[in-house]
Amino acid sequence: MASLSLEEMEEDSIQLGVESVDNEISYANCFVGMFRTSSVVHFQAIRSTLANVWYRIGGVSISDLENGQFLFRFYCQVDVDRVERNGSWNFNSHLLVLNHLI
C-alpha cells in the first residue's frame, strides 16, 4: 500500500469524458453498462470479446468502474449508432444493459 500513488495511471483506466473546444466535458460517445447476472463476469474477456464484436471504426475503450459497472467509450459517432441500433447485447448469455451518457 505504501508504494501506491495517485500519479500512476492504471492500464485499464481511461479519462472520463472528452474535453470539447469550450473546455466542457462531453459524454456523448460513452455508455455505462451492467450485466444482469449474479455471477462474476471477467473484465479482460469482456474487453477483448466486445471490442471485436462491435467492429469499431474509430475505436473503443472499455473500463471497469467496479461494482459490476463498465464504461464503454467510442471515438466515432458511427460506432455509437451501430451499438444503439443493433442491441440487445449479451456476453456468455448474460444480458448487457447499456445507458447512453448524453
Rank of each mutant, 00 (worst) to 15 (best):
D81N: 14
D79Q: 01
W89Q: 01
D79G: 02
L4D: 13
V78W: 11
N86H: 12
L16D: 08
I62E: 08
S88M: 01
I25K: 01
S93K: 10
E10K: 08
N29W: 12
R73Q: 13
V80F: 09
L6D: 00
N52G: 07
F35V: 09
R36V: 15
I102M: 04
Q69S: 01
W89P: 03
V78M: 12
C30V: 04
I57T: 00
V41L: 05
Y27P: 03
Q44F: 11
F31C: 01
E8F: 01
R56Q: 02
L101G: 06
V80G: 03
I25M: 12
M9Q: 12
N52I: 08
L71Q: 05
V60G: 00
R56P: 00
V78T: 11
E10R: 05
R85G: 00
A51M: 11
F43P: 01
A45E: 04
L6I: 09
V53N: 03
Y27S: 03
S5G: 05
G87H: 08
I102G: 03
W54L: 00
I62F: 13
E10C: 03
S13R: 14
S61M: 09
V32S: 06
L95S: 14
C76F: 10
S63R: 11
S61Q: 13
S48Y: 01
W54E: 08
M1W: 04
R85Y: 05
N52Q: 13
E24P: 02
C76K: 06
S93L: 06
N92L: 08
Q15G: 03
S3M: 15
R47N: 15
N23P: 04
R56C: 00
F72L: 14
L71K: 01
L65S: 07
V32K: 02
E84K: 14
Q15L: 15
M34S: 10
E11Q: 11
S26F: 10
N29T: 06
F70R: 02
Q15D: 12
I25Q: 05
I14M: 14
M34T: 12
N29R: 10
L95A: 15
V83Q: 04
S88D: 08
N90C: 06
S5C: 05
E10V: 04
G17S: 07
G58Y: 01
S93F: 03
R36C: 14
L98K: 05
D64P: 10
L95H: 14
N67T: 08
F91R: 01
N67D: 13
R85L: 13
L4I: 02
M9L: 13
S20C: 08
S13W: 14
N23G: 09
V21E: 09
E8Y: 08
R36T: 11
E24A: 07
G17M: 05
I14K: 09
S39A: 14
T49W: 08
T49L: 07
